[in-house]
Design a protein around this nucleic acid. Structure first.
Lengths: 222, 222
DNA sequence: CGAAAAACAACATATTCATGTCATACCGCC
DNA sequence: GGCGGTATGACATGAATATGTTGTTTTTCG
């Protein structure tokens, strides 16, 4: 840690705000540069801050603008800042709104202070901490969305069956990777990839990456 | 904790598998009911398990089916089971695929064992643990999304329209032809084909034949 | 008409790919 | 124990591809 992280807190309840301030600013990792009881107050006082905040811990339920509505406004002023939401609301809709607005994480107010500190550090390190139930909402939003069919057109109708390793290499090609990237993906050498490709080409009777992929394309529609 | 959580592990590297087994099964919270080195082996040995696993910790890079491809198959056999991914891959595309397939969380292999244990318990408690960088990908996928994350258009980012000639050239590529053959097909010079390809690559944001074809493959199934 | 877009083309250079040849190691199996 | 198959890897060479720069001609459209 070269220098402490410039932290700002937006929270309307004085008791909670003070608790957060006392605890977090006692930590050597942070430096509290701004405390506000609303988004409006935050934006108003921003020019007075000694250092522009890098991390902003914000409530949602605030007088005036909500914390969610504030995110784009804050980011317009502080392009590099990251907003972490700290809210009592645990409903999926509000979580999605916050993330769409640009929040980098979403914690519930029952989060222990020690953990809150850890989570703020995670944000600074490029993480996106979310309270357990919140994360589950987010993950579930992905579910049963366009999934590549788990059926394998390749395994069927093959003149000569490919080995597991060969299939992995073929998948790399289908993903549009170069030999080097395929090698990295499977922790084998470039020459080994070449070796497998060679055998695949013989088995499938093709002579280039393009022919191999054209084969797959045809198989998909035909 | 009334009874230990029934845990299964799918990991091809014996050393890692053994480490996970030794550590996790020494914990009173867990009971390892199945260890497998591939999805296929897992499904094969599933009937022999004394208790059906509730939690499944799975690698992605496996011989044969990948861990991602395995999720729907596993859930078909174990409707109540939750699959947590433990992978070396930290790319956004793979994370999204895993979550779409039904994974409840995504951890990187550099996760300390103690934390891994905590994360497994979180899963059982309805959480969705993700390694910091992974969570950030997921959160960013929500950003500036108008409404529900109904469709995740990572490539639906409207491509600049291709001209008629450019489309003809792209079709040639999809047919697996070399530049020279495409040139012959349309009675234009090799350099002209290059010229068109260059523009197509810029418009579609790709840098190789393989990426272009991978895009088409994805478009067809996705 | 005149500007913009598209099509066509050449030249150069760097990277990636296809292919040949060869070698080592492990595994299952008769 | 040897044999075939799979996985791994090195080295080398010519072909194909990617990319930059720079043109001319044709078509499209305000």
């Amino acid at each position: 840690m070269i220098s402490p992280l410039a932290l700002a807190i937006i929270e309307d309840q004085a008791a909670i705000r003070d608790t957060l301030h006392e605890y977090l600013c006692a930590q050597p990792e942070f430096r509290c540069v701004l405390m506000a009881e609303s988004v409006e107050a935050f934006l108003r006082d921003l020019p007075t801050a000694a250092v522009p905040p890098q991390l902003i811990l914000s409530d949602i339920g605030l007088p005036g603008l909500t914390g969610i509505e504030g995110i784009p406004l804050i980011q317009a002023q502080l392009p590099g800042a990251q907003v972490l939401i700290l809210s009592v609301y645990a409903d999926a809709e509000r979580v999605f709104e916050a993330l769409r607005a640009g929040a980098v994480g979403y914690l519930l107010k029952n989060t222990p202070l020690a953990q809150l500190k850890e989570n703020l550090l995670q944000v600074a390190a490029g993480g996106s901490p979310m309270s357990p139930g919140v994360a589950r909402f987010v993950v579930q939003a992905f579910r049963h969305q366009p999934v590549a069919p788990a059926a394998f057109p390749l395994e069927t109708l093959l003149p000569e069956p490919l080995t597991a390793r060969e299939l992995e290499v073929v998948r790399g090609i289908e993903d549009g990777l170069s030999y080097q990237l395929i090698a990295d993906r499977h922790f084998i050498s470039l020459d080994t990839v070449r070796s497998h490709i060679r055998n695949v080409y013989r088995k499938l009777q093709v002579n280039s990456k393009a022919e191999l992929m054209a084969r797959q394309l045809k198989r998909q529609r035909g």
